[in-house]
Write a protein that binds this DNA or RNA. Structure first.
Lengths: 211, 211
DNA sequence: TTCAATATCACACAATTGTGTGAGAAAAAC
DNA sequence: GTTTTTCTCACACAATTGTGTGATATTGAA
């Protein structure tokens, strides 16, 4: 018997899912709540095998709820319910520790199968959403418009050392040049990378795979 | 007619794939090379619709090849061939611009279907490898040893604003507190995160998925 | 209720970063 | 073989960051 907790801010959704699962002998809906905080309250006291979680909720959304719920009950299996226009955050779902995701428009059979898979800890994914997720991954390399700016070899060295938390003085020592030189390299980097400060440059360097 | 280029450092693999595709009327193998450099040479001069690329190759591996090939021919569809023990880098495959991946142990029919899908630009994925990929995503949050330090809500806000290249003064204005307060939060962050400067904190924040 | 953690602020001061301007030598590109 | 880019350095100065020390009010947990 798989114990399920439903979480969705739309009563109709809760009702619909409950109805879908009503005749399933292996599945028992042990609760239905309408936001993340209530989820956390619920699982503190009661046993739950699978959490069916709406991504969009007031007070505490699915993502945050997943994070907190996983801390409370690391072995809890969480299935995220999404619409198909939320592809860009699907990777986050898994980073936070969810077991899988289902489309809200999923059929009864795929819902039930998904729950059973999740209960066993299997990853649950709709191929449709997976494709969207991959799209969002491939879009990553160029976070800003256009190409990575052309950086010289020396500038890259300086940038990498900045990323390693070295001061200008320390970088100068490592490269056997004066601090003025390092400062000039940084100055040029700021212009090329259009960054306000070292933090900005390092972030971009990470985005572009330079560190 | 889909024009295919094969790239694998194992002659047997090349032979095997060629044989598999021999009787396919819609697919034509226009070349077979054994490393990434040869791939780039090939696609410079000749027309190719789909590139079937081994992930592990000498001289230039599949990942690097994908990156360069995509620069040369942005519309080229690349299918990566992998064994099932390389899950952790599957996300990189897509980040570099590949269209999909196939298991080397794939059946003839799934290979052919995969190629046809790829030729149309469709994402190609084996559900098995997708699960591995997602595992590697969920593992990401703690790349360094140990746990992420406990940061308060306010400290997180400050940290996120630092990452957005705001100065202490600007952060203070945004949060309606004094610069002294922001400085104190930063001070505490330095201790908690064991960072030397803001750059270090932002790097860790990225590692831990806080920004 | 008491205690620990959080969030707030002040003042002072050293260290570091970022900017403006100018310039010479070496290496690479043309 | 000339031109451009890269790498180097200097000096000065404003802005920002990071540190040390101490203090008060609020909150939430024990």
């Amino acid at each position: 018997m798989i114990k399920i907790l439903l979480a969705d801010d739309h009563q109709i959704m809760l009702g619909g899912i409950s109805a879908m699962l009503e005749n399933e002998k292996e599945i028992e809906v042990v609760g239905a709540v309408s936001n993340g905080l209530e989820v956390l309250e619920f699982i503190k006291n009661k046993e739950v095998d699978v959490l069916l979680l709406d991504l969009q909720m007031p007070v505490m959304d699915g993502l945050e709820t997943t994070m907190h719920a996983k801390k409370l009950r690391p072995k809890l299996n969480i299935l995220m319910l999404t619409t198909n226009d939320e592809g860009s955050i699907i990777t986050s779902i898994f980073k936070k520790g969810a077991t899988g995701y289902l489309l809200k428009s999923a059929s009864k059979s795929s819902l039930i199968q998904g729950i059973k898979d999740a209960a066993e800890g299997k990853k649950v994914l709709s191929s449709h959403l997976t494709a969207i997720m991959i799209d969002s991954l491939s879009e990553k390399p160029s976070p800003k418009k256009g190409e990575a700016p052309p950086i010289t070899k020396r500038e890259l060295e300086v940038l990498q050392l900045i990323a390693e938390e070295f001061t200008t003085q320390e970088i100068a020592d490592k490269l056997f040049v004066s601090t003025n030189t390092v400062a000039t390299h940084k100055r040029n980097l700021f212009v090329k990378m259009d960054a306000k400060n070292s933090v900005g440059m390092v972030k971009m360097a990470i985005d572009w795979g330079w560190i």
